[in-house]
Design a protein around this nucleic acid. Structure first.
Length: 748
DNA sequence: CCTGATGTCCTTTTT
DNA sequence: GGACATCAGG
């Protein structure tokens, strides 16, 4: 076995595998086989050095990366791989915190708040503190608090140090410290940790309980970190502490692919690692096995514009390959069509599978135009990321019931379900209950149990019913297994009935989603290898899951769509990077500082280096943004690539007229008059606009979308066999659209 | 206190 | 084009 894997490696790769002791940093260029090195390194430790897998920790940034690595190692070392301590930072330390929670005063089944939970809690807090919701928007406050936590600044230090107050005052938001304090206390009382807390509290645990730190330090002989360039300060300190005794820390990363600065990732971790570990061994993996020469050259020419980076020379032995294809479109919709037809053409010409294509974009919202075009051409696709299953309202609602029944201190969950399904309890009552809880310093649940002594009036009865329900649920959870308990709660809470009564298309899919969640719980509880099959364990895992591995897709032959961020670590034969426009990529919000712009450039570098065979870059000259058609300039990044590497494709370009807005308006007003009943009361709003132009059939029709509403199309002839249609979309005017639907019946 | 209609704001990336 | 706020009427 040893011969096998070592023989297939190049010199620096081999060194990365066998050089297991002492601090080590692998600088791994894109496509240089770093996952392979990490996998073999672990296999080497277990098989050659006879290290107990239990004493190896491997940290990644995504669940997907963790799962993939586990799978690969399993192939080499078999079942033992199961004992490796491997996963994302958040999941590994959530697990540790769960067993050590009492040391920090948290319940073992503490709730994990996602960003939405945190923000809605913050919103309520700002209101309670009587602060201006405009200056203290949840987003702003939340980001500030996260940044502090990532730098390991607790609220005590934050409120105690005048530097932070001065900084906040300068930005005219001096009360952030107060909010931070209230938020932290509230989370603690709710028995809840947000994502940042998982790391912050791990640090706290290790700082305040040296015996605990000691336990892990001695247990863990080897610590490995993948995507090290994405670690923030808080994560870095955890790594350093855990490896302080063994000194066997191996970090793998590529400074050129550091793209999570917004989450606190600090590129200086990688640039300064040497200072913290003077006898650090640095190994550079510079040979790219993934891409053609063209792609590697393009990537290098882009990244060399950056100033902050480690010197390295990424090269390849592969063929020169095809030129990069630059596709120009007139609108975002046309961009979609061009990409779709290009994919179709390439697939046919080269006999490829759809699974070999990926469409990468900067923002999730760009997927819509792509999806529509792919659907229209009957090209199968899969979206990775975006709104996660676990972020859907109906899913979160049921989860909130489960969470609250398990942890009845949890305020965020309480607020979610107290009046869902509707039971006649409004904001006034909710406020009374929470205020009572915090005034008396008791958990919400205690108030609820004696709700009649706090609440009077017509909300008292339903509140008591609610309390009774929850106490039943608590018993259910204790006496039944995870799946049965969850099913019963879904039923008795009224969620299933409420959704079942909704016969709309969305209602149906919501109902299915809840069923799907129950299935997931069932599957979770029926996995034989799983140690902890409780509902509590499921909730913890679900909280850290993102829109990734949840696609149990049995048809693998699909085009993949995702953001560039999600694509890190992956590779595809044909890659389309769409929306190469100034202000979009690089993002408008990243233009203010040089560091930000460099991060965007690294993002572009990541996008390019996903490609094995052929790279396509596309942009549109106009695009809908802020609800308006806006002209776009090609991205500055395009200029960074040597012209000789690019082939400009114009063959697809088709004539497409711009939507004649005034004409559309008068058309709409005439429709409004002729609708039955006439829609006269509504004033034309600024939001009402003629939308995309499109090449479609002749005549006017109302298209019903999957949302049960529709679009109005007017098709016009522009001569030379060129027809264009105007598509009217309405925003905030669903009533009007329903009238249009009626109109269709009249005109038939 | 609920519901439905309308208005307003946002809009980068993710564990 | 969605989430949320707000207002009127029930």
């Amino acid at each position: 076995m040893k011969q096998d894997y070592l023989a297939a490696l190049n010199e620096p790769q081999r060194e990365g595998v066998i050089n297991t002791d002492g601090p080590c940093m692998l600088i791994a260029g894109a496509g240089s086989g770093k996952t392979r090195v990490l996998t073999y390194r672990m296999a080497h430790l277990v098989q050659e050095k006879k290290v107990d897998p239990f004493r190896i920790m491997a940290l990644t940034f995504t669940n997907k990366a963790a799962a993939e690595m586990r799978g690969r190692i399993e192939k080499v070392i078999g079942n033992e791989a199961r004992n490796l301590m491997m996963g994302t930072f958040h999941s590994v330390f959530a697990r540790i915190l769960r067993t050590e929670a009492d040391k920090l005063g948290y319940p073992g089944h503490f709730t994990i708040y996602d960003a939405d939970d945190s923000k809605s809690l913050l919103k309520n807090l700002v209101k309670e503190l009587g602060l201006d919701p405009e200056t203290y928007k949840p987003n702003v406050v939340f980001n500030r608090i996260c940044a502090a936590k990532n730098r390991l600044i607790g609220w005590e230090e934050y409120t105690g140090n005048p530097i932070y107050l001065a900084d906040d005052s300068e930005h005219r938001r001096p009360e952030i410290g107060r909010i931070y304090r209230a938020y932290s206390l509230r989370c603690f009382q709710s028995g809840a940790m947000d994502f940042e807390d998982l790391l912050f509290n791990t640090n706290k645990l290790f700082n305040e309980h040296l015996d605990t730190l000691n336990k892990y330090q001695h247990r863990l002989q080897y610590v490995m970190v993948d995507e090290f360039q994405d670690t923030n300060f808080s994560q870095y300190l955890i790594i350093r502490k855990l490896s302080a005794v063994s000194q066997n820390v191996c970090v793998v990363g590529d400074d050129a692919q550091s793209i999570y600065g917004f989450r606190g990732a600090d590129i200086s971790n990688i640039l300064n690692f040497e200072k913290d570990y003077p006898d650090l061994k640095i190994i550079k993996l510079e040979q790219n096995y993934r891409s053609t020469k063209t792609i590697v050259e393009a990537a290098n020419s882009v990244i060399e514009k950056n100033t902050a980076q480690i010197q390295k020379n990424v090269w390849t032995d592969n063929n020169q390959g095809q030129q990069i294809e630059l596709i120009k479109a007139s609108t975002d919709n046309e961009e979609g069509r061009l990409v779709a037809s290009s994919i179709f053409e390439e697939k046919m010409q080269k006999q490829l599978h759809y699974s070999e294509f990926v469409i990468l974009y900067r923002t999730n919202s760009q997927s819509r135009a792509m999806e529509e075009a792919l659907r229209r051409m009957n090209i199968k696709y899969r979206i990775v990321g975006g709104l996660s299953f676990y972020q859907r309202k109906e899913v979160k609602d049921l989860l909130a019931y489960l969470r609250f029944s398990l942890n009845p201190q949890d305020e965020a969950s309480f607020r979610r379900i107290i009046n869902y399904p509707k039971r006649g309890i409004g904001d006034a009552t909710v406020d009374k209950i929470t205020v009572a809880a915090y005034d008396h310093g008791i958990p919400i649940w205690t108030v609820l149990q004696k709700v009649s002594s706090f609440i009077s009036g017509r909300a008292a009865a339903p509140a008591e019913d609610f309390a009774a329900k929850i106490s039943n649920f608590k018993i259910t959870i204790e006496t039944k297994d995870a799946f049965e308990a969850a099913s019963e709660i879904a039923k008795s809470s009224g969620i299933l009935r409420d959704l079942y009564e909704d016969k709309t298309v969305e209602g149906l899919s919501r109902y299915e989603n809840v069923q799907e969640l129950l299935n997931a719980i069932k599957e979770f509880a029926e996995t034989p290898e799983r140690e902890d099959k409780t509902l509590s364990a499921f909730l913890q895992e679900a909280a850290l899951l993102t829109g990734q591995d949840e696609n149990k897709d049995n048809d693998p032959d699909k085009v993949t769509l995702m953001t560039i961020h999600m694509a890190k670590g992956l590779e595809f034969s044909h890659v389309y990077v769409v929306g190469m426009e100034e202000d979009l990529f690089p993002s408008q919000m990243m233009l203010s500082s040089r560091a930000d712009l460099e991060e965007e450039r690294r993002l572009f570098y990541v996008a390019i280096t996903r490609a094995q065979q052929k790279l396509f870059l596309t942009y549109a000259t106009s695009r809908y943004r802020y609800g308006r058609l806006k002209n776009c300039e090609p991205s500055r990044f395009l200029k960074d690539i040597d012209k000789s590497l690019i082939h400009v494709n114009t063959k697809f370009n088709v004539f497409e007229p711009e939507a004649p807005k005034e004409y559309a308006k008068s058309f709409v007003s005439s429709l409004r008059k002729s609708a039955s009943p006439p829609v006269s009361s509504h004033k034309p709003s600024a939001d009402f606009r003629p939308d995309n132009t499109d090449l479609l059939q002749e005549g006017m029709k109302v298209e019903h979308s999957k949302f049960g509403f529709g679009k109005v199309l007017l098709i016009e002839n522009f001569g030379n066999d060129r027809k264009a249609s105007i598509e009217f979309e309405t925003i905030g005017m669903k009533t009007l659209l329903l009238s249009f639907a009626k109109l269709k019946i009249h005109t038939q």
